[in-house]
Design a protein around this nucleic acid. Structure first.
Lengths: 252, 252
DNA sequence: CGTTGTGAAATCCTTCACAGCA
DNA sequence: TGCTGTGAAGGATTTCACAACG
């Protein structure tokens, strides 16, 4: 499993914390909405509210990028949009391939969020000869035999896997061998990749199971809840659950 | 924002760390695969490899559940499957509604992973009268006018939102008002919910943006990379969290 | 003034390393 | 002997609280 040794190069690395990186897209979206409403400046408090985080965290996050605010005033919306976009690498175009054009792959291909900022669906790939040549979201599906050629000709470095779990690992290996270094995995499988390759995963059933855990706990508490028991709330706006646990009044 | 203050009751709380909870489904999946191959026992090292984590973390995680292993031997697969399932609340059935039957909603309805483990699609709901009565994944789509009735009659406590972002918040509010206390949000929006309601988000474009960030950095490092520089690998198996963003996609 | 930027404290999570048990 | 379970150390992240500054 790709250990994720994060050797920091000796050179003064930018070192933006991973947790911060994961929130930058949230800020960017909130800022883009403000920009469209022609709001010129915004305070950390307001922006934090729009992004669903608290303002101290937001200011700390921005402090890793630089000093882009004005004391007593707030942040210039347009300027911040630009700075965050640049930091995230969205000022350039990222061609993406989607491998596995079933229900989910097709849904993603049709998803507008792709093209909107920096990402472009360069190709749709499927192993089923029946699919080859079909149009999905205005793009012609190509056969997986040509995967290597497609990737190198389009300069693709980001791949999305929406195949059945059984073939996800081999698809992953072919993608990596062909030059892909970032993978977004929708298949419910743990992918092994060599160092230098990033994998992020999206897994419906894991998310549901996490919800079920908390749901079960709420039910238990409710039953035990006598006067004075405090029911906790979970707003996990951002990645983790901030407030973490739930009381879970331990009976005997 | 809904701050979720977590009052800790005076009693010793069960307190399984959120990070651990997020990994339990991974362990469960690996264990289920072993179980299907009739493997009787497994060591922390083997199981950790299958789940994509390191063994110390796995043992620490399990230590929060109890002492379910045998020193010198390992863990009994069947027993662990049961214990984790119970901990996650998967020994009971969770009826789920999906709201918004577009491409993505339909893909999720067809997704096998739902039924497999404790979750059952109790209803599909859409606001478009054209959709009402249509069959998707063998289930008849119902109109959103009946949302409250559907939820209460089926005892639904988990809702999945796959609507366009513009209506996600109001759908969320109706779900909550009708009794839903856990929401899985696929719409690129920050949802506000009252205390006591859990929200988890799955957002394609956020994940892509995080990948783009690292991708950009790799490109930069590569350019600077002289002999001896080590390129970092990121295997972020599991999740932090889904977040939500799309740069202002004006949905049609 | 009002708001940012940030050291310092507090909290949460991961990793180490080894005692203890089957 | 081999592997679990876990204190303790080490990191990472969040929160606090306030000095600095436009």
């Amino acid at each position: 499993m790709a250990t994720g040794r994060t050797h920091r190069p000796a050179t003064r690395s930018r070192g933006i914390p991973e947790a911060t990186v994961a929130r930058l897209p949230l800020y960017l979206r909130a800022l883009t909405a403000l920009s469209e409403r022609s709001v010129p400046t915004v305070s950390s408090e307001e922006l934090a509210a729009a992004a669903g985080v608290n303002s101290a965290k937001l200011r700390k996050d921005f402090s890793y990028l630089g000093s882009y605010g004005t004391r007593g005033v707030g942040y210039d919306v347009e300027y911040l949009v630009y700075q965050i976009s640049r930091e995230l690498g969205l000022t350039q175009d990222w061609p993406v391939v989607i491998v596995g054009i079933g229900n989910l792959g097709a849904a993603l291909a049709n998803y507008g969020g792709f093209a909107s900022r920096g990402f472009r669906v360069a190709a749709l790939i499927d192993a089923d000869p029946e699919m080859t040549g079909k149009q999905v979201a205005g793009i012609t599906v190509q056969h997986s035999d040509d995967m290597e050629k497609i990737i190198s000709e389009n300069g693709v470095s980001i791949g999305v896997i929406t195949t059945p779990p059984g073939v996800a690992q081999q698809v992953c290996e072919r993608l990596v061998a062909a030059g892909v270094t970032s993978i977004l995995n929708f298949a419910p499988t743990v992918l092994s990749v060599p160092d230098g390759v990033d994998v992020r995963k999206v897994d419906l059933s894991i998310e549901l199971q996490i919800l079920a855990f908390h749901e079960q706990r709420k039910a238990g508490e409710e039953a035990e809840a006598q006067a004075g028991a405090v029911v906790a709330a979970h707003q996990e706006s951002d990645g983790k659950g901030p407030d973490g646990d739930v009381p879970a009044v331990m009976p005997a």
